[in-house]
Design a protein around this nucleic acid. Structure first.
Lengths: 379, 379
DNA sequence: GTTTGCTCCGAAACCGGTTTCGGCAACGAA
DNA sequence: TTCGTTGCCGAAACCGGTTTCGGAGCAAAC
């Protein structure tokens, strides 16, 4: 006879098999004839366990396929063995064909340390900090990868104040006097690429070389512009402010800048672009003006998106290895969460030139080019 | 005086602030003057808590910003409030510009239920099951989204045996007698799209309409082919086996199929493609053969990748809303983990036609087209 | 006035690990 | 021999929640 009505949940939940076949620490300890505290410490590399015991424990743990539940560990340690990344979903240039490669690199690196990767997306700049805050507060990750770093990046200030480990994909604080010793990052040296692009074009005989940058709020955009300026100087060319454009985040905005450049009294014979999208935006403009890319106008891009090889003519560009970037960022971040100094966890890599047919020696002088353009436009 | 040497870890770990400012269940209970068991049950909707108390608990919990640690809950409940997705990193057509949108949809849906999304990647078909197994065993997720479902999908068998909730992006078991009642899925009806494509082309006056499919191991490829066949039948056209190609996973493979089609004695005047990539692969082939796309040959794609609008002429295609797909999949999956019947969690949506300039009324008969092609090739 | 039954809540066990603390044995020095 | 170390391990507390179980209080029924 039942006297007490058992309370029940409102929403009934089918009872899942709760980690059915798993080997637990208790069982492992039983089999080894040790206490679970000893087994735990053996597995975690404490120094008060004899070498022979440790070996024995490790061997049977491996044989029995024991894997600790990360959330069971987390409750005591506070560490969940996971890294997180929050992705923008509002930027106009958010379509990133490399996201999959990047994630593959990051996940693979995480996996080898038995970590996992959790991702989230943010709908706006403000939402970004909210999402980060939620992940931090609920302790969903031990560290963060911050992609698309801005010159003055709110996420950096936020996470630094919270003392949560993070790593930048890119650098930040352009031109700041504060050296920011305590931030780790991985980056591809875009400035080296754009400098090399200018050098390459100068060698081909170009004298008027333009630059189309991306949104200047992003640090990479300024760095690539710096590289461009550096390249000009190295080639002994003078900088013409008219030829330095910025803010082209999309194909369309790239097209707008290209149009403005080509309508100059003395148009450039070559354009270095901070992104492939901007470079591809130049294509229809050139076609429209009757200019042959690679001869009348040379174009060099940056990123190495797949589309570069399918346009006509193929776009010469600097290709970024996204997979490796993800892999490096994840490993460096994990090392940071394990206590290594952020300042020592920095790496700079290079993009590799993929030469195609969109650049070559100039066929016309800027003046002749201007005449040709005027002619076409009048008709 | 210290007599016992304190043992220490091998690798020193900087002590992180362990969830410093968080409000814990204990504190909340103290403030409310209740026991923590009562508070817990109030928040989890147990029926043995009075309504007034529940309201009071919920109100202060919200006011104090209390959020339970999901890994602390998980240790007892076995549920981590997370869904996972494992992505291929080995397929040749892995570059998915929509991954970001898809993830945005899925993450947003997860967030609204206070869930998170963990992702991982697999390097090979075999690795896929290993990765899934690890995630299941370590209980990193309560359910899985399986993208790119194959006709006979190993992941389905694997997870079904383990009784782990999952949902398909796509359907599976093409032509199987087993109805597979117990599987939930979300899909876009590709067959409707290809059928509509054929109908559209037939209305424009085409009689010889070809089809270029993707890898037949994927269920969607067969379904889209079925839609094509259905469309032919509806238009009263007879099916010519020569015009039904399959296996084009990349642009290059699409190009190969297009070339084979156009070299037929009686070439098609229109091509329906299972993917935009295959359709874009047809472009250079047509150019090479001197055929004007949209007049000599009509082409219709499927997917709606951004590039469609930038090629010349713009590619008519059926556009898939990846963001919505991610959103639906995540919500349905979460509902499934809460106990709803998988069979009731199915949704079929439609792709939307984006008409551009790559299709139009046929300018030549197949015979005239063949003559034109022969002429160009001979020169 | 009991008994019964129901509503609502608290004490305590529990989940699967980690970490603290103390104790036992062995060993070297006094 | 005795004492202080040292090496190695077990008992128990602990992390932050969830769930079980029992019981107090009260109203209705007998």
């Amino acid at each position: 006879m039942m006297t007490n009505p058992r309370p029940q949940k409102r929403q009934s939940s089918l009872r899942q098999t709760p980690a059915s076949g798993r080997v637990k620490l208790d069982q492992l300890a039983d089999i080894l004839g040790l206490s679970k505290s000893t087994v735990s410490r053996a597995l975690n590399g404490y120094s008060d366990i004899s070498d022979t015991t440790r070996k024995r424990v490790e061997a049977t743990a491996r044989k029995m396929g024991y894997r600790p539940l990360s959330h069971a560990q987390a409750i005591r340690t506070g560490r969940v063995r996971a890294i997180a990344m929050v992705i923008n979903s509002w930027e106009p240039d958010r379509n990133n064909p490399f996201l999959q490669d990047f994630l593959a690199g990051a996940c693979e690196a995480a996996s080898t340390s038995d970590w996992t990767m959790t991702i989230s997306t943010a709908k706006s700049e403000k939402d970004m900090l909210d999402v980060l805050g939620r992940l931090v507060e609920e302790r969903k990750a031990d560290g963060f990868i911050l992609p698309r770093t801005e010159v003055d990046d709110a996420r950096v200030h936020y996470l630094r104040d919270l003392k949560v480990p993070f790593i930048l994909y890119g650098r930040t604080g352009y031109g700041e006097t504060d050296p920011q010793d305590d931030i780790s990052w991985f980056d591809i040296s875009g400035e080296t690429a754009t400098e090399n692009a200018v050098t390459r074009l100068a060698h081909l005989g170009h004298h008027r070389i333009a630059y189309i940058g991306s949104d200047p709020k992003f640090n990479y955009s300024r760095l690539r512009r710096d590289g461009y300026l550096q390249g000009l100087q190295a080639a002994g060319l003078t900088m013409d402010p008219d030829l330095v454009r910025e803010g082209a985040r999309t194909r369309e905005e790239g097209a707008a800048e290209a149009r403005a450049l080509m309508q100059l009294p003395s148009p450039p014979t070559a354009i270095v672009c901070a992104t492939d999208l901007a470079a591809l935006g130049c294509y229809p403009v050139c076609t429209e003006l009757g200019l042959e890319i690679g001869h009348d106008v040379s174009i060099v891009g940056y990123d190495g998106i797949p589309e570069c090889q399918y346009v006509n003519p193929g776009l010469t560009t600097f290709s970024v290895d996204s997979r490796r970037a993800g892999e490096r960022l994840a490993t460096l971040l994990i090392r940071q969460t394990r206590g290594e100094e952020p300042a020592t966890l920095r790496e700079l890599s290079n993009a590799v030139l993929i030469a195609r047919e969109s650049d070559g020696p100039p066929r016309l002088t800027p003046e002749a080019l201007a005449r040709k353009i005027n002619l076409i436009q009048r008709s």
